[in-house]
Design a protein around this nucleic acid. Structure first.
Length: 426
DNA sequence: TCTGGGGTCCTAGGACCC
DNA sequence: TCTGGGGTCCTAGGACCC
């Protein structure tokens, strides 16, 4: 049996932990650049604030109803997430927890006796809330996909379910699948959902009853086969060892205002490259490919928003590296190649790929002897930036003023990760 | 005026090899 | 006259997730 434990309105719940005056009040948290709404409390949902909708469009509802608004505070949320995950590990053992995202984790419950599953699910929920202040919903089922569906049901009617739903018997599963739209299935996104509905397949139950071969042809081959197996209660997506080494590392940001100058674009790219290189070193890896992209601002009058096409270029390095200076140089050069004078840009990003473990880096016959020094410099840099504050030491090419920096006007205090912002009780 | 920032997996097709 | 079959590796692109 699997459980999925999913934090309720995670970012909002984090903000509330240190602000009891917001309990039972509507709260929303914005994405970077204060662009979209990425977390809503139940009260905000009831007011009609849309998930992932642009902030400016919901502003009238927000001011009218006195909704509390926060910019994202990822240091804080990351720390709270760790506390939740540590609690789960303490309860089922480290090897039975798979952290799936910042606010959810799959648990393997094979060791829990069948008739104790329900009690255990409630204990899980209550313990996390008691130890961290974050409320969670728990879904339990024989496969991960069914557990996700159980979790949705638990969240949908909290009064009735008390945030816990089990889909153990075939009867329970049938009912749950019949009331779930195909678009609500984990693994079915917009494209497949539309396709399925056009075929007359509207509920998860309908999909579950389609032949394997049909699903193979129409839903991405083995991916689709796995999906319907899971819906039928046969585990096909197993617990994964935590992926500690990423295969791709990206740092991308919208700008706070449109950018037109080449030097500003270069500063931004240098800054993002530094951040990406830091992530790379944290997982003790090196990268062989650097790609850079910029997105021009464009007039758009269409209803459904989409970013325009991005302009990108990549460079393959002679040998994989994790040194910031060796990555910034090619990255900034790529900006020269793709920049067009006279255009406005709204977003840029850097991606590192071709990632290999650091110890396996092939020596380059022609590279200078300075490698030891670089390594020393990098670890000094990371230590200072980690212990003091981000970016206190940086490369000059990153710029000093950063007029292009994203907006973040409503960020809360980093109560749990910064001494000078510690929560005070008077 | 104003719309995030990360990631993953799979498939198809081309280049290349023997 | 006539030109195979099987494999690997890489990249681009499409789907998905939160």
């Amino acid at each position: 049996m699997y459980a999925i434990v999913d934090c309720n309105s995670f970012y909002c719940s984090c903000e509330r932990v240190f602000k009891p005056e917001l309990w039972n009040k509507p709260v929303v948290v914005l994405s970077n650049n204060d662009g979209c709404i990425v977390s809503r409390s139940d009260e905000a949902k009831q007011l009609g604030v849309k998930m992932a909708g642009p902030y400016f469009q919901a502003k009238h509802i927000i001011t009218k109803n006195n909704v509390a608004v926060f910019s994202s505070n990822y240091h804080f949320y990351g720390d709270m997430s760790m506390r939740v995950m540590d609690t789960l590990r303490a309860m089922v053992g480290e090897s039975n927890v798979e952290v799936y995202s910042v606010d959810e984790a799959f648990l393997n419950l094979d060791k829990i006796p069948f008739d104790e599953l329900e009690t255990f699910a409630y204990t899980l929920k209550e313990t996390v809330e008691l130890w961290t202040g974050i409320s969670v919903s728990v879904g339990v089922a024989p496969t991960k996909t069914l557990a996700k569906i159980a979790n949705h049901i638990a969240k949908k009617d909290k009064e009735k379910t008390k945030c816990v739903t089990l889909l153990i018997t075939e009867e329970e599963q049938r009912k749950a699948l019949q009331q779930t739209r195909v678009s609500g299935i984990w693994g079915v996104g917009g494209a497949y959902a539309n396709k399925l509905i056009n075929w007359g397949i509207t509920s998860a139950w309908d999909l579950r009853n389609m032949p394997d071969d049909w699903v193979h042809v129409h839903m991405g081959g083995v991916v689709g086969r796995r999906l319907i197996k899971e819906l039928r209660g046969e585990p096909a997506i197993i617990m994964r060892k935590e992926l500690d080494t990423k295969k791709m590392i990206a740092t991308t940001r919208m700008f706070g205002r449109p950018v037109t100058e080449l030097y500003e674009l270069k500063e931004a790219i240098a800054t993002y490259t530094s951040r990406a290189a830091e992530k790379l070193r944290r997982q003790q890896c090196a990268a062989k490919t650097v790609s850079v992209f910029i997105v021009p601002k464009e007039e758009s009058h269409s209803m459904d928003f989409s970013h325009g096409p991005s302009i990108s270029a990549y460079a393959t390095l002679q040998s994989a590296t994790s040194f910031t200076q060796d990555l910034i140089k090619p990255a900034v050069k790529l900006v020269d190649d793709i920049f067009q004078k006279g255009r406005e840009y709204k977003k840029a990003g850097v991606m590192l790929s071709g990632i290999v473990p650091d110890e396996s880096i092939q020596g380059n016959f022609f590279s200078a002897e300075s490698k030891g020094m670089s390594r020393f410099l990098m670890s000094a840099l990371d230590n200072v930036n980690f212990s003091m504050r981000d970016d206190i030491v940086k490369f000059c090419s990153s710029g000093i003023n950063k007029h292009w920096k994203m907006r973040q006007e409503l960020r809360s205090q980093r109560h749990s990760t910064r001494w000078e912002e510690l929560f005070e009780i008077s």
